[in-house]
């Protein structure tokens, strides 16, 4: 048995990782909840955002947390345009087509990055990246603690937007009853695009939180997106709070699996969980019923 002095830091670190997973999954689940599509381009868009954050630092000397302020609106616009002008029109209203179009987008984005920047893995050096927070029982990396706080704030903000603003109400109306929403004068194509944009904006924030302690290469998004799929299914497709809770849960599971089974098999734990949940509880463990 491992002692508490190893176990507790592992759990806390898992929670910190899980928060960022949760944010990535939040974008995915929001899109699923409203558009009822699985966005297979999510991982590639995360990769693109991480490259953007990387080059914002490398070329413009922009601190990642500052870059988030610029990149989030940019990715919001990018997401809006992608859904409004590419995915929506190309899909002809068929779910199968959406799967294929987002998959095609993923392939294009990922390989354009590969073509432009090569397969090299890149990191940035920040003087605060190795700063640690001493909790007495565990040492935690400062950027990850900051990330945890930001994720909670973003989730709260998103929740407020969805429940208080007119656009938020329209989004929820479309999610519940698309035809009814359309009949009461809501522009469904616009709401779809806004939702997709919100999901993509979440990725820009996640990227800026990841880049201080993580690395970036053209395939990095895949590692996150399968985890995000797991979280989305686990939390109940379309459930925002479910995504966050499931994200934290998956972060801890990964951290513990990594501790007991080693780094590469730690990921297996997630996939096995994913498959089991898909097979036996496709509506999620603690989400609303699909």
């Amino acid at each position: 048995m491992l002692s508490l002095t190893i176990l507790v830091p592992a759990i806390l670190n898992g929670l910190l990782t899980g928060a960022v997973y949760g944010l990535v999954a939040l974008g995915l689940t929001l899109i699923y909840g409203v558009l009822h599509i699985i966005n297979f381009a999510h991982g590639a868009l995360l990769t693109a955002a991480m490259f953007a954050a990387f080059f914002a630092h490398r070329l413009l000397g922009l601190d990642p947390y500052l870059a988030a302020v610029v990149l989030t609106p940019m990715f919001f616009v990018l997401g809006y345009c992608l859904q409004r002008f590419v995915i929506g029109p190309a899909a002809h209203g068929e779910d199968r087509n959406v799967l294929l179009v987002t998959l095609g987008l993923a392939v294009v984005i990922e390989n354009m990055l590969l073509y432009a920047f090569g397969a090299d893995t890149r990191t940035i050096n920040l003087d605060y990246a190795f700063r640690i927070v001493d909790l007495g029982i565990a040492f935690l990396a400062l950027p990850r603690v900051v990330g945890f706080g930001v994720v909670l704030a973003v989730t709260l903000l998103l929740w407020l937007v969805l429940s208080l603003t007119d656009t938020g109400k329209a989004i929820r109306a479309v999610a519940k009853e698309k035809l009814g929403a359309q009949l009461s004068g809501i522009d469904v194509a616009h709401i779809y695009a806004v939702t997709f944009a919100l999901g993509t904006a979440c990725l820009a924030i996640a990227a800026c939180l990841l880049i201080p302690t993580y690395y970036v290469n053209p395939h990095i998004g895949n590692a996150f997106v399968l985890v995000a799929f797991t979280i989305v299914v686990l939390g109940g497709m379309g459930s925002v709070t479910g995504a966050l809770v499931a994200g934290l849960f998956v972060g801890v599971v990964e951290s513990l699996c990594g501790l007991y089974l080693g780094e590469s098999l730690g990921q297996i734990g997630i996939f096995v969980m994913f498959i089991l949940v898909l097979l036996f509880r496709p509506s999620g463990l603690f989400g609303e019923r699909a």
Binding site: A91, N97, L100, V108, N111, Y115
Partner: peptide
Amino acid sequence: DAPGLDLVVYGGVLILVVAFAP
């Protein structure tokens, strides 16, 4: 022979075919 470019073409073709010639 740059890595990635053929796949960019494949992804683009996939989107175009779904959009214009299902």
